[in-house]
Write a protein that binds this DNA or RNA. Structure first.
Lengths: 168, 168
DNA sequence: CCATGGTCGTTCGAATTTGAACCACCACCT
DNA sequence: AGGTGGTGGTTCAAATTCGAACGACCATGG
């Protein structure tokens, strides 16, 4: 109940700060952030779309926007001819690092700092459970027991290069 | 973090169920729900917009849509010539009553039932605090402990109205 | 009574989102 | 090989969102 109000308000605050501080939109920021913590700062379009919970076409559009600004680059996927990799450019990294502090500050100020450490921990647990319950299930009945829906055997070793910033 | 994913996923599930079950969108439902708990099932446009945390123009559009479907009606405000009241029609009430159970079921299934009673209570407290922290503050750009701007001033902020149904 | 500023709701243009349609390509099977 | 189903990404039209601009109206103060 308050949930709805809080989420809408927070979204507004975030958009407001983000736009004023660096000309980015929240979707833009989410994309940059996701890419920044990806193995080689790059992800397949579909994969990225799934992680961000947006439609394929929506992502195509936003990546186009970010490409115009030089923050992201498209590359052909070596292992899959039809695939496209969205790659965070160096300028994208700089932009994110420049933007992250302000963004984090807003989230802290309006959400995190309102909570006791205990509440924060509970919050994290709640959201994780909720996210898990909804992820790729068509029906409502297979919380954690289902066989792992993992990545198709990605041959490249995942080494999440320690990203400098923490753009959560 | 998981927060973002959870909120996006939940939004999707809600839209999905709502659209399939009754042809309503989530914004539509939020409007109907808000109106249904208002004093005479009616609210001023501006007031409604503020409560829903949407822009004035966005609300104008959505009310127009709902008016086409006969779920909401516009009336002139008696006490203020320039004002417009959005009034929930009887059909709107029926539609909401018909739709609410399914909607509640989704929210229960994916969010509430995932939590212990204790977590649920904490969740409610968290969201209330967060919403309160963000509510009527006009200024922006004062997240990181800006001193000059304090909460003081308005001794009055809310006029909670009696309600009847709980279709949230 | 009339000027002044502020609020209310709508209209307008621009940006964004989604799902469906589409083609190129991969994985599997015979 | 050759066919078949399915996935990956883009393009398209339609719907929705917001902010700015606008005209109408309230509230004060001279």
């Amino acid at each position: 109940m308050a949930y709805l109000r809080a989420t809408h308000l927070l979204e507004r605050r975030i958009e407001e700060q983000l736009k004023a501080d660096s000309g980015l939109t929240h979707p833009h920021y989410e994309i940059l952030a996701k890419l920044s913590i990806a193995p080689q700062r790059r992800l397949r379009m579909s994969d990225l779309a799934r992680r961000l919970v947006v439609s394929k076409s929506g992502l195509t559009y936003q990546i186009g926007q970010l490409e115009k600004r030089g923050l992201v680059e498209r590359m052909d996927c070596p292992s899959d001819e039809r695939g496209v990799l969205a790659v965070l450019t160096d300028e994208g990294v700089r932009c994110l690092e420049k933007t992250a502090p302000g963004h984090v500050a807003v989230v802290r100020a309006f959400l995190i700092d309102q909570l006791t450490p205990e509440e924060l921990a509970t919050m994290a647990r709640i959201m994780s459970k909720a996210a898990a319950a909804m992820s790729p299930n068509g029906s409502h009945g297979s919380p954690p027991g289902s066989p792992g829906e993992s990545q198709g055997g990605s041959p490249n070793g995942d080494r999440p290069s320690p990203s400098q910033a923490d753009p959560a």
